[in-house]
Design a protein around this nucleic acid. Sequence first.
DNA 1: GTAATTGCAAATACTTTGCCACGTA
DNA 2: TACGTGGCAAAGTATTTGCAATTAC
Lengths: 141, 141
Amino acid sequence: MSELVQDTITRLRDSGMRKTKALVELVETLADESRPMTLAELCASKRLVDLCDKATVFRLLQKFADKGVVRRLGLHERAAYFVLLVPGRHSDYLICTSCGTIEAIKAPCPVHALEDEIREKTGYQNLYHELEFFGVCPACV
Amino acid sequence: MSELVQDTITRLRDSGMRKTKALVELVETLADESRPMTLAELCASKRLVDLCDKATVFRLLQKFADKGVVRRLGLHERAAYFVLLVPGRHSDYLICTSCGTIEAIKAPCPVHALEDEIREKTGYQNLYHELEFFGVCPACV
DNA sequence: GTAATTGCAAATACTTTGCCACGTA
DNA sequence: TACGTGGCAAAGTATTTGCAATTAC
């Protein structure tokens, strides 16, 4: 068991959770992959597929996120977001994790150089990016 | 009607779509707001609420996205993505829009300076960011 | 022993489609 | 007139919850 896994489990224990097989194997799976994964992917992974129910994984992830051990990616709502593409313009967004307000950021986007580098080094076609900042807005503090 | 709206409608017309009231009002709404919006928000907006059905807005958005006029934000799957947070580490991701593969990017993240600036200027608390690059990976081209 | 955790199944939520009526070109 | 578009309702997919049984401590 890696140090990261040990440490993560310790943090979860310290926050009051019980060390169950499902908890340990979920942390191991997340650490193994070190990339964003869906609930379905996690449940289908070899460590978890025959071990526990989807509801269990869901509830563990929820608690992990509460405790800051896991992050759920994406914008505020569960629903999909659509935005108009304006030729020649690019926007990044600032989103309040409490009230869900989304505003466009005026500052120039600092990512174009890295985007060019990725285009050259990886051979990905039609490259573009999304950049979002999340935090609690002054009105919600 | 703004130039952006006119131009967008022209592009949609040129790609074979018919100019209907629902299409025009949806484009106007997206241009008015110029921020990512959910299907529910769009349907509830003043221009659309009494004009057309949710299925209509959905199908229009789908076509707009096909034609590159609108972008649907977020990772590949409809489902939520979860990732383990490693203290002291931050990752950005490169995602194939065709096969959905997600890989972490090794290059240093160029966003920290802007993040600091936003923290100072806006007063948002607990600020963090997500940065994703999207494109078609070499295996999918 | 007690309270957290789990499985199962049901309830929600959001998205997507089928079908026929309708409107645009 | 012909074919894209729209409304309504139903189906599909993902998320979330209730409750009784189980397990960690």
